[in-house]
Structures are given as structure tokens and as C-alpha cells.
Design a protein around this nucleic acid. Structure first.
Lengths: 227, 227
DNA sequence: TACACCCCATAACGCTGTTATAACCAGGTT
DNA sequence: AACCTGGTTATAACAGCGTTATGGGGTGTA
């Protein structure tokens, strides 16, 4: 194949991924179908097979794009001289991304079957572990670096960045999943009842006085318009 | 209908639910099919429709049974004079149930499509909110009561039981989902890196000295054989 | 002009949930 | 005993799904 083929072929793949994500968010995972994804770019089912070899790899590509977009959103959170406030901004951005792209978020974490397929642990390893797709690691690295900054600015009793990051991730992940699953009842409320107090505990354990942490979080909440 | 009909009819429904759960755990959500569930009890697809009106309600019944079993597992955790240790036992039991019934757990929380259907928010409200199915509320009540006991035994600065319970639930939920999704890498490890430190922070915030909390948790870990 | 190769539309296969139809079978009525 | 009645069920069909075999249509190369 000539080098020019990489261009148009990649463009078609990107259009397929974009179409799949569009269908996913608008019609749920059951709307992601070979016929509809193909029709969305003016083609037939074969487009999915020639470019991805089947729905399975398209779903993986969708997850990669989802993590890539998440990383881009998190990168846009600026670093100030208050790393605690920065990290809570990051948590709010994470939650907002998850809520505004809840179907995509589910696919990213292997919790949704789209087109008859879901992200398998082996695909997760490609994204988060030792694999060749960097998107998931990039997103997590932003959390990790934020935690590093908090610990570095703390009193020295802040613990290990990796385990603290994983705890934060677990809490946020559980929170958003229960929230948009309807397990908390009406939404928005749960930011104050769950995310804020959880973040306070975690940030304080990274070596900062509880009152200072509370102030930093309160500032962010006010800035972002959370009553 | 005569009153005797409630017996055999209910028995058939229970057998269908049991068959669906068996297929679910053994073959994943895609193995829960009208033809297979019917064949499992020696009947045809119509059994699902006469007794549940379709796959949708069977999935709801599966989720109810899942929460009912979870509540039974959690009830078997005895109450001692150390409510902090009791609650960590509860957390370990919750995690163990989730891992040993990971497919069922996903269905319970609306994260898995079985037989073309998944638990919708309206079904969640029936289980966890204002609805007529008590199974989900029963399971959560066991967490809530455990938190109440911890706060009552604490120094009085323990916070509000409901919000503390929701934080605990979020952390545990996120932890088990990331764990059996493969996002933590090798399992077992994450009990020490995530669940234990998260529980320490949460229990301490319920009004207990960090050292006492750590001791209680260490005792439980030793008792349960976590290296 | 001729060849080679990728891309894709068409049509089919096997599978799914669902449903219309008709048979069956127990209990109550005549 | 004969007959109806309502719930349960097997059978067969339908529309839809992911997938695949086939063959036609472009484009670049010789």
C-alpha cells in the first residue's frame, strides 16, 4: 500500500468511531449496530469489517477515544498554587465528563455491551496496563500527578501516591456509577453528600489540615456554582 | 384462580430465576436467553412469557434475588463489641459476594445486559428507592445500621450515618468494579492498597482514633487470612 | 491495455427476543 | 358423565442482530 493510503483509511476509521460514539450517546449501547454505524457514514455493514475486523475492535476503538477525550478534559484543568483545589476541580471535571458521556463512560470501563461486545480484561490491559494503547494510562497519570503534587505540598505524612490515587479513583468511579444509575435518588445532591466528604478525607490523609482542605474544596464549589 | 395455584406457579418462577442466575454466572449475560432458560427447567421459551411477561421482568427478578442473597450474606456477619471490626467484616463480605457473583452483581447494579435487557433507573427505584421491592433497601440498611453503631460508639464527632454510608458504599462499589474489571492489575493486592486505607479513613471520620481503627481492621485481616 | 489490490454493496446464515396459534389439562358446572 | 373455562404450554413464525461469502467497482502500477 502507498503511504497516502494511511490518510483516507484513518479518516474513515475515525468517522466510524465518531459515528459509533454518536449513536451510543443518543440511543444507548443497543443503537451501536453494524448496519447503523455503516449507514451513518453512508456505507454498509462491511465498512466495520474492512476497517476494524468486526464490532469487537470498534468497541475497543470507542473506548480508546473515550479515554483520550477524558484525558483532554482533565488536561484543561489548570494547575494553580493550591494543589488540593486543583485535584477537586479534576474530580468535578471527571464526574462531569462521566455524566455528560455516561454511555461512553460505561463502555470505557467494560460495563456496557455495545454491538454485542464489551471491553474485556485483555483490552483493559492494553489501555491501563502493559499494553500498547496509552489513552487509559494518560488519563490516570493526570490523577497520579495531581496526587503527587498534593503530597509534595503536605506535611510529609501523606502516604504513597499510587495507593492514594487508586482510592480516589475507586471513590469517584463508584460515586458516578451509583449516581447515574439512580441509586442515590435525585442527582446533584450526591456531590455534597458523597463526593465532597470523601474528597475531604482523602486529601486530608495526603498530609493537609482538614480545615485547609475544606476551605480549598469550598472555594472550588463556589467557583463552579454548586450551591 | 385458586389459592393453591400460588404455590406451583411461584415455584416455577423461582426455578426460572434460579436457572437464569445459573446461566448468568456460568456463561455470562449473553447466556441468559429465553430458549436456554426455558430448556433449563424443561420447558420452552413461553415459560418466560407466561410467568414474567418477557425477559425484562425476569432480569428484574434476577436482580431482586441478587440483592436478597447479598442481604443474607451480610446478615451472617455477627455483631461483636467492636463495631469498626464488624463493619470491615461487612465490607469484606460485600467484596467477596461481588467477586464470587460478579455477573449477578453487574446485573443488580444495572451494568449488564442480560437477555437483551438491563435494570433501568425505574427498576432501581423499585429496589432502592420508593418502590415495592424491598431487597435492595434491606441490603443497604445493613450498611446503614453498621455505620450507626460505629458512630454511636465513637467520640461524638462522627457525622451523619446516611452520608457516611453512601461514601462507604461508593468506595466499595468502585473498588470491586475496578477490581474485577482488571483495572487494578492482579487482584487480592488491591484489598491492601485500596479497600483497607479507604476504610481506615472513613471509619476514623466516624469518630474513632486512627490507631484503634487500624488495629480493628488488622485483626479482621488476620482472622480472614489476608496476608 | 492489463494486472493487482483494496474497498464495499448485496445477500445470505445462524442466532436472538418476541408473538400468534393451537393444543393440553385441571377444576367447576350442568 | 359431559361440557365448559382459564391458565399453561409447545410449535412455528417474524423481525432484527452480528457475521460472512460472493462478486463488482474503483485506483494505482506495469
Amino acid at each position: 500500500m502507498s503511504t497516502r493510503d494511511l490518510g483516507p483509511a484513518k479518516a474513515t476509521r475515525d468517522r466510524l468511531v465518531a459515528a459509533a460514539i454518536r449513536l451510543l450517546e443518543e440511543g444507548g449501547p443497543e443503537a451501536v449496530q453494524t448496519r447503523r454505524v455503516g449507514a451513518e457514514i453512508g456505507a454498509s455493514t462491511m465498512a466495520v469489517y474492512t476497517h476494524f475486523g468486526g464490532m469487537k475492535n470498534l468497541v475497543v476503538a470507542v473506548a480508546r477515544e473515550g479515554f483520550s477525550r477524558l484525558a483532554r478534559v482533565m488536561e484543561n484543568v489548570p494547575a494553580t498554587d493550591d494543589p488540593v483545589a486543583d485535584m477537586f476541580e479534576l474530580a468535578l471535571a471527571y464526574r462531569q465528563y462521566a455524566l455528560e458521556n455516561s454511555q461512553l463512560y460505561r463502555v470505557m470501563f467494560g460495563l456496557s455491551v455495545a454491538g454485542g461486545h464489551r471491553l474485556a480484561p485483555v483490552d483493559v490491559d492494553e489501555l491501563m496496563g502493559t499494553g500498547r494503547y496509552p489513552e487509559g494510562r494518560e488519563a490516570f497519570a493526570l490523577v497520579y500527578r495531581g496526587v503527587e503534587r498534593i503530597i509534595a505540598a503536605g506535611d510529609g505524612a501523606g502516604g504513597e501516591p499510587l495507593t492514594e490515587s487508586l482510592q480516589l479513583w475507586s471513590g469517584a468511579h463508584g460515586h458516578v456509577l451509583l449516581e447515574f444509575g439512580g441509586y442515590f435518588g435525585p442527582p446533584e445532591q450526591s456531590v455534597h453528600t458523597v463526593l465532597v466528604p470523601l474528597a475531604e478525607k482523602l486529601f486530608a490523609a495526603m498530609g493537609h489540615p482538614p480545615e485547609a482542605v475544606r476551605d480549598s474544596i469550598r472555594t472550588v464549589l463556589a467557583r463552579r456554582g454548586y450551591a
